[in-house]
């Protein structure tokens, strides 16, 4: 069932997006659309700019003093890099899960409740924490020890807690920067199953080093190389019949 990005409703799109770190250009004039309620994977060798591109989507690059962004990231008809856009609001709408699980050194409950408190959540805090933990498929493992430190959880559990933390503030898009690269195969497969479940309610963009993972979890795949978008399209087609030589060389393991 090969499908085209153009036929689908767009959740977020970039237009001629470039990023510099000092004098080095990490992302070069990338234009692509992320379809709603789909999983898009960014693949490519180390240093190809896939993480940098991902971090543009919720203005995480703002935190790096030397980073400079040009071009547009459009979300709900608004350029996220326009002057009147507050990155704090962007990050609530577009959540992020990081490479290494990074729970707060607080209780499991507090990890999820923090985002709700700071954003002035008006509903039932406990209920929302439970719903988020359930959505991240970790509720059954932690429901009896919500007040224990999150640092006592295993790596895989910590990462699912981080996903719950991101989901709690009800984002529309979930960005995942190599979310399973620090985890063992069993924990990885749980995260992958979870991504499959979350697709129903969220648009997911995942950066991964692992091509099998991209093939397993994503609907669309973008291949980046030295800051450029080489190829972007239906995952199955891209892996079985890439149209670019460099894509084929990369996915068949001839470089990278």
């Amino acid at each position: 069932m090969n499908q085209s990005v153009a036929e689908l409703d767009t959740a977020l799109g970039t237009h001629d997006l470039s990023v510099w770190y000092g004098d080095t250009q990490a992302v070069k004039h990338i234009t692509l659309d992320i379809p709603r309620n789909r999983v898009v994977a960014f693949i490519g060798p180390s240093g190809c700019g896939k993480s940098t591109l991902l971090r543009c989507f919720n203005r995480m690059n703002d935190l790096i003093p030397t980073a400079r962004v040009e071009g547009e990231v459009n979300f709900r008809g608004q350029n996220l890099y326009a002057d009147d856009v507050d990155p704090v609001e962007v990050r609530r709408r577009i959540g992020m899960v990081f490479q290494k699980p990074n729970p707060f050194p607080k209780s499991i409950y507090e990890n999820v409740a923090f985002g709700l408190r700071i954003n002035g959540f008006k509903g039932d805090l406990k209920e929302q924490v439970e719903r988020s933990l359930r959505a991240a498929a970790i509720w059954d493992e932690v429901k009896d020890r919500l007040q224990d430190s999150a640092l006592g959880l295993s790596g895989g559990q910590q990462q699912r807690l981080c996903i719950a933390r991101a989901l709690a503030v009800e984002p529309e898009i979930l960005l995942m920067d190599e979310p399973a690269s620090a985890l063992d195969p069993i924990a990885t497969s749980r995260i992958e199953d979870l991504i499959e479940d979350l697709k129903k309610d969220y648009t997911i963009v995942i950066v991964t080093h692992n091509m099998q993972q991209a093939a397993r979890v994503s609907d669309f795949t973008a291949f980046l190389y030295i800051g450029e978008l080489i190829e972007y399209g239906d995952t199955e087609r891209l892996f079985t019949n890439p149209s670019e030589d460099r894509t084929e060389q990369y996915i068949t393991g001839r470089f990278g």
């Binding site: 704090v88 609001e89 990074n102």
Partner: peptide, 26 residues
């Protein structure tokens, strides 16, 4: 660790909230 700051910014914390709730206690 900067990962802690990123985690807090990631759920929509302001700089003051990051400093107050995460950087200072640690």
């Amino acid at each position: 660790p900067s990962s802690l700051r990123e985690a807090a910014y990631g759920v929509g914390a302001t700089r003051w909230q990051v400093v107050r709730h995460h950087v200072l206690p640690v």
